[in-house]
Design a protein around this nucleic acid. Structure first.
Lengths: 240, 240
DNA sequence: CCAAAAGTGTTACCTATACACCCATGA
DNA sequence: TCATGGGTGTATAGGTAACACTTTTGG
């Protein structure tokens, strides 16, 4: 499902020179899951085990070829669904990687997307022998240049989080302000003053309060909020 | 030199289904030139006239195929040199456009770069029957989806300019602070207080004063400064 | 000496931050 | 009633924008 299966017939060198570069789509999928140690939410992403050369048995980003009948974004959404069984809350193009020696066998240009999946659904995502969720920080060595790609995706995520309203896409339909704060703390890896954070969110006005409260906690039940859609236009993504 | 020449043999529909999408590189090249009316610096970009179908005789972004032996960035730099004869001061990937119907004849995925060229050299850039500089705002209708691409490149330029240190790449080796301010005013299309702007620049510390002064003006000669390289790391562009 | 741009100083305002404090709930 | 997180108020610091002011040149 990754680079090695594209242009399998072009493996020999003589054909490689006339063949155009292969085109592949990969996706970095982020979700929040409780840490194994602290239990606090942390960033995770699903990886797939390579079952062929090159990089056989190493882990890699989900990816695949670009079908003729689908747009780049559709292709990313499709292979995201195929590996995790989930639909993303957020999907954005990350970068086109086209270095000469990304794949040892033949030239591959990968157009990489990154996605956010909400935590509750990520729990249900299927894992198998060849699909596994890993913590986004301190990953093992991955196939191809996928470590670089993940690092860049992390940078982009943190950057958009810093100002922007993508944090909500890691949560469900309704959420407490403390949950939003936990998202920020997990992604930016620092503590945030709850009082100030609350004010910043409320004046950003991209959320609205519901009349519901989250029950079942040990203390005062917090109010639930809902994402109303971006009123700030931080990125006019090309419709393409 | 653009999409129509790629995969010329795949023009018929039956082959189109089995053929992978064609891969092309295009570049949005920005430079400052004096406005025809006011004489104040404004944004311009070079366009090439299409000499074949589709979109014959319409203007389009410089672009071409991706050669096997070059990276994406190298390919962008090469076709920039081929059309304008210039080397860019700045070159960054913009976006990969891969919509299904960008080109009427066959599926094309364009990886688009954007570049900054310094004003003094842009004056010398060759123009011909089929290469012309146009003002970046209020462009005529271009071939393919190139109007969208230019709009997105403009948004990206303005965004990076707002905080970041790319303005210097539109200027030469040395420059006055007023010239930097004019760049900001031209790109962001608003006036800026000279006094406050000066302070912001100097504390940003990505420039250093020379002991030279710009002579030949009507008034007090301003000091010349030099760009020392980014100390702020606003974008860890993938090396790829 | 005058006009105009270079460059400096001062002040009001806005917002991020720190932190004291009250509120509401489960145990 | 106590511990704890939810939620509000407030003082302070740092940065931005507005603008008065001084300096230096060419004409």
């Amino acid at each position: 499902m990754t680079e090695s299966r594209l242009y399998a017939s072009a493996a020999n060198v003589s054909e490689r020179l006339v063949q155009p570069p292969a085109l592949a789509i990969s996706t970095v999928i982020f979700a929040l899951r409780p840490s194994a140690t602290s239990g606090r939410p942390t960033l995770w992403l699903p990886l797939v085990r390579r079952i062929r050369e090159p990089f056989k048995d190493l882990w890699a980003l989900p990816g695949g070829p670009l079908t003729q009948a689908e747009s780049l974004q559709d292709a990313a959404a499709r292979n995201l669904a195929e590996t995790t069984g989930l639909a993303p809350n957020y999907l954005e193009q990350l970068y086109a990687f086209g270095g000469l020696h990304r794949s040892p066998s033949q030239r591959v240009v990968s157009i990489v997307y990154w996605a956010l999946v909400e935590a509750t659904q990520a729990e249900l995502a299927r894992e198998s022998e060849n699909v596994r969720w890993c913590r986004a920080d301190g990953l093992q060595t991955l196939a191809f240049d996928h470590n670089e790609i993940v690092d860049y995706a992390l940078w982009r995520l943190r950057n958009k989080m810093a100002y922007g309203s993508i944090a909500y896409h890691l949560l469900g339909e309704t959420f407490t302000l403390a949950q939003v704060r936990e998202v920020y703390e997990a992604v930016l890896d620092r503590t945030i003053d709850p009082a100030n954070f609350r004010r910043q969110l409320k004046q950003a006005a991209s959320i609205e309060p519901t009349d519901q409260y989250l029950q079942g906690g040990k203390h005062r039940p917090p109010r639930l909020y809902r994402y109303t859609g971006r009123t700030d236009h931080d990125a006019p993504e090309p419709t393409d």
